[in-house]
Design a protein around this nucleic acid. Structure first.
Lengths: 267, 267
DNA sequence: CGTCGCCTTGATGGATCTCAATAATAGTGG
DNA sequence: CCACTATTATTGAGATCCATCAAGGCGACG
């Protein structure tokens, strides 16, 4: 996975440990929005790959936005820190997945992204999504932009799915939904979806699901007793399809919009 | 707010009640990403405004994506429906805010968006964010695309803030955070942030915050007893700055990344 | 004036957070 | 290579918050 040979071509180390990405040698090229870009880009415009050691921060809050990232290898977590110092794990990122899109808005990141183990990432400056277009300067190519938009749209969608996970289920349901989603994504990343190693600690899982870590630990034990899964440390084997039984909460009656309620006098 | 005069110019009613938007007369033009677009767009490419009656669905799940929407007047809620029929209110939309970005990914919406009272919206086809560029067809103008990207980036960011609201606090903290955010946004929309009318039912609030509606009702009563706010029906007056006292949950120890942990043997 | 939707209030039980102690694992250094 | 230490994970007991069930009030509307 680590390919020191290609990192020999270190440009006048403009950024620590970054080197131009070799897309043609990347196994993720099929799913990468940067693939298929014109090769004629300037040096500040091309994808840059970087090796990251376990525990290292890839993005810090307040840091300047310099592009979105795609995971080539390894696992990452992103989290925000509130003014009072409390943290919230907002997501995990598997090989082939993206992060860093929160910084586009105002050019400054709000989330931290940290490597959960040693891996490598590819930084895609927004200019990667442009194509050089005559003398008029950079124009956004329709196809590139669309893929970027889709990327962000899918992120929005996934985040909203998380509302379901966080809200509509019991602690057990939350964990099952989380594991089910993780399993699916592990499969997409090329792992065996029914048997893999959890890349994050119980603490991270608990924080992400807004549970106490003891609850997570107990649930693992319980699910193992029920024969749903086997877990030893972080090694996980899924034995039965994970299906969360939701808790019903403040159901919205009926929404067929058949009944357009008369306008309240809120002007 | 409703301006029937302008709706007289109904084009051969290609869509129910839609008419070309008159941006120059729109009070939101300063914050709208469609503002400043070339006027030379074709008829299918321009913003379309629409009056919406209370209770009406603006977007249905499975519906084809036809653009993102900006609220001109009124209030809206969006929600998803799970396979088992359970619902989750994913957000509320105030005047000047946007919705519908979940449909960009695959051209199909996943959320429902419903009018909470009578209002009006503006539909912005993605083509609005293009500029006609010679014979090559539609090219995305850098500025337009950037504003769209920022829009989506801010949506991602706000959604992630919601994780905080949902997770790190008690029921009371959740409600306070929600009200605080709502107050701020009401201010941005031109209302008095310390005294406004809740546009949604207790049921919607409870669902959005993943609480029982009785809990929400009790909390309002309690907060009023504490002198934090006054509430009568949906009329709300905020007396003290709303500050949520978080419940500490699976705190992440220290993250200064000062200590780059040695690489585990997960290859 | 009766119905319906929305909101409030009370009583109760259960899920899960907290505190606390122990066990297992991984990293460190001799 | 082994002991030492720090981190991470498990398990237990008690307390508490909040969902649930149930009843009633209030306002809107026909």
């Amino acid at each position: 996975m680590s390919n020191p040979a290609s990192t020999n071509i270190v440009m006048m180390n403009r950024d620590r440990h970054e080197s131009p990405a070799s897309c043609h040698a990347c196994s993720r090229v099929g799913r990468c929005p940067a693939a298929g870009r014109p090769e004629s880009l300037g040096q500040t415009d091309q994808p840059m790959q970087k090796l990251v050691k376990s525990g290292k921060l890839v993005i810090e809050a307040e840091a300047k936005f310099e592009g979105i990232y795609v995971v080539r290898a390894g696992f990452f977590k992103s989290y925000t820190v509130d003014t009072d110092g409390s943290m919230q794990v907002t997501g995990f990122h598997l090989p082939g997945e993206f992060f860093g899109m929160d910084g586009i808005e105002d050019g400054v990141h709000k989330e931290y992204v940290q490597a959960l183990d040693t891996g490598s990432i590819c930084r895609l400056p927004l200019e990667v999504f442009c194509s050089l277009n005559g003398a008029a300067g950079h124009e956004w190519s329709t196809q590139m932009t669309r893929s970027l938009l889709k990327l962000m749209s899918s992120t929005i969608r996934r985040d909203r799915d998380m509302f379901f996970t966080l809200g509509k289920t019991t602690a057990k349901g939350r964990l099952l939904t989380f594991l089910s989603d993780l399993s699916r994504r592990m499969g997409l990343s090329g792992y065996d979806p029914s048997e893999f190693r959890l890349c994050m600690s119980r603490t991270d899982i608990a924080n992400h699901l807004c549970l106490a870590l003891e609850t997570v630990s107990r649930l693992f034990t319980q699910l193992q007793a029920e024969g749903v899964l086997e877990i030893s440390g972080r090694a996980l084997r899924i034995l039965e399809p994970l299906d969360a039984t939701p808790r019903k909460l403040a159901a919205i009656p009926d929404v067929s919009a058949r009944r357009a309620v008369a306008e309240p006098k809120t002007a």
